[in-house]
């Protein structure tokens, strides 16, 4: 079990499998939100499904409109379980609050896209500012 400390975040405690990339994230331009896959060819997760995954990115991009999009995804039940960033942006954090989608960022141990590996099993606790990798030690 590895414990990673981060800034206090948004949303409830959640458990799930990680999908990790060193790339950034835009809810508006990177996703096919109906199919639940990364649809921008230049994105490192192109073609992969994000549904039910805990996503790990470097940072968030995209304009003000993306604040509504996590909520829209959540109500259709095609949604990531949580999103982790090295640094979130204000817009997506606001969107996570609307959607009650767990989101945390600013990890004390360093680059989160290196510390977590795709397939890792995670527990994300935004209130405590804690992410636990349960399958490794």
């Amino acid at each position: 079990m590895i414990k990673l400390k981060c800034h206090v975040g948004i949303g409830p405690v959640v458990e799930g499998e990680a999908l990790v990339t060193s790339d950034d994230f835009s809810a508006r331009y990177d996703l096919d939100r109906i199919k639940g896959v990364f649809s921008r060819p230049a994105h490192k997760l192109f073609g992969q499904s994000y549904d039910g995954k805990i996503l790990v990115f470097n940072t968030a991009k995209g304009g003000v409109a993306s604040a509504w999009m996590l909520h829209e995804m959540k109500t259709r039940n095609v949604t990531p379980k949580a999103i982790l960033f090295n640094a979130a942006n204000t817009i997506l954090a606001q969107g996570a609050a609307l959607a009650a989608l767990p989101m945390v960022d600013r990890f004390e141990e360093g680059d989160i896209t290196q510390l977590i590996k795709t397939g890792d099993h995670l527990i994300v606790d935004p209130e405590k500012g804690l992410v636990t990798i349960t399958n490794r030690s």
């Binding site: 508006r28 304009g63 409109a65 509504w68 999009m69 909520h71 829209e72 109500t75």
Partner: peptide
């Protein structure tokens, strides 16, 4: 407020 229907979706409008 920025809230175009494309980004709101049905869910945002209902909200």
């Amino acid at each position: 407020m920025m809230a175009d229907p494309e980004s709101l979706g049905e869910a945002g409008v209902a909200f």
